[in-house]
Design a protein around this nucleic acid. Structure first.
Lengths: 183, 183
DNA sequence: CTCGTTTGCCAACAATTGTTGACTTGATCT
DNA sequence: AGATCAAGTCAACAATTGTTGGCAAACGAG
């Protein structure tokens, strides 16, 4: 059932995502988030319990990986990298997670879970050997998260300068090999 | 000339590196660092000015990349990845830099500088086209930093589980292609 | 309308933080 | 020995933080 405070809750969540993404967990203060949402800081506590609860709510995230069963195995890397790039840019949540992860165990668990539960199955469907699935998913994480780190958090100039096409061109073969390449 | 306080200064720096690496910039408090070094917090201020000054001193870092001019171009990736892994594990400074980078502009500049000044020349010596050097160095950064992030900061289980040999086996071809591969 | 519940704001608390200044100890040099 | 200066200790400040409880207004059910 819809509550009268749903707008406020949503405003808090949106402000929290943006602040967490921009400043990380500790530097994003509840007072700043509340100011962005134009409400009193105490409302945040009422609706989300405490700062960690707010983060947990703001860090809810679905990669929305498409169904790749009909995609030829050889263009898997390309499709995956393309999807990641789009998803990363349209939703700041992943950046918030990444920024918070360095000091927030909850964020680490969330990232771990995302790669295990959402990327894992895709890998499982195409990896040569089931025993290698976690390793391959982990390797995919190293390249995808590393690219996101350099592009959206560190903002290394040459990595920021890459357009989407070039980024896919460089990263896709890497992901492809981590998914299906020989050990 | 050696000062009588050199031992104290070194103890502060060591404690700072370890705390920054373990907790990140904001959660590593001066009080905790001083306690580790068994001195008064005010000594930190006296010798390093403020917290940022302490971090700047603690984040001094040299990759110590070996001279790779005589290495055959084809085993460049392998040598580089191996060196990175060793360096990363013997010195916590890089992890401290990585952890601090999400909220500390100084750390970002330092990482940017390290890759531009220390990795850049290696790339320059082997890249087909000089114009591509920054891009290629940036790509190397995405994979190397991504691996370090997943292994030492996030501690993703499958990435932690890789032994050095396996890690080199997986990453070396990626780095090799970013260094010398076709665009 | 009336009552209870929800929503919101205000002020304040306790803890922690980086940082500062005054004071004491100890070594070094004349 | 006495003077000088670095090295170290102690206590406190000012600001910021997450968090709490009380109170006023708005709403919805009866």
């Amino acid at each position: 059932m819809p509550r009268r405070s749903d707008d406020t809750r949503a405003a808090i969540l949106a402000a929290a995502r943006s602040r967490f993404a921009a400043d990380g967990f500790e530097r994003a203060t509840i007072r700043a988030i509340a100011a962005d949402a134009r409400i009193d800081p105490s409302m945040v506590m009422r609706y989300y319990g405490n700062k960690e609860g707010l983060f947990a709510a703001a860090a809810e995230f679905d990669l929305r990986l498409p169904d790749l069963r009909e995609v030829p195995a050889s263009s898997l890397g390309e499709r995956l990298v393309g999807h990641f790039l789009v998803r990363w840019e349209e939703d700041g949540t992943l950046v918030a997670l990444l920024r918070a992860a360095v000091s927030q165990d909850a964020a680490v668990s969330r990232i771990t879970a995302i790669f295990a539960e959402q990327v894992g199955p895709v890998v499982a469907r195409h990896a040569p050997d089931p025993a290698e699935v976690p390793t391959r998913a982990g390797l995919v994480a190293t390249q995808i998260l590393g690219f996101a780190l350099c592009r959206y958090v560190l903002r290394l100039p040459p990595v920021v300068a890459l357009d989407r096409e070039a980024a896919v061109g460089w990263l896709a073969p890497t992901i492809q090999r981590y998914l299906t390449g020989a050990v």
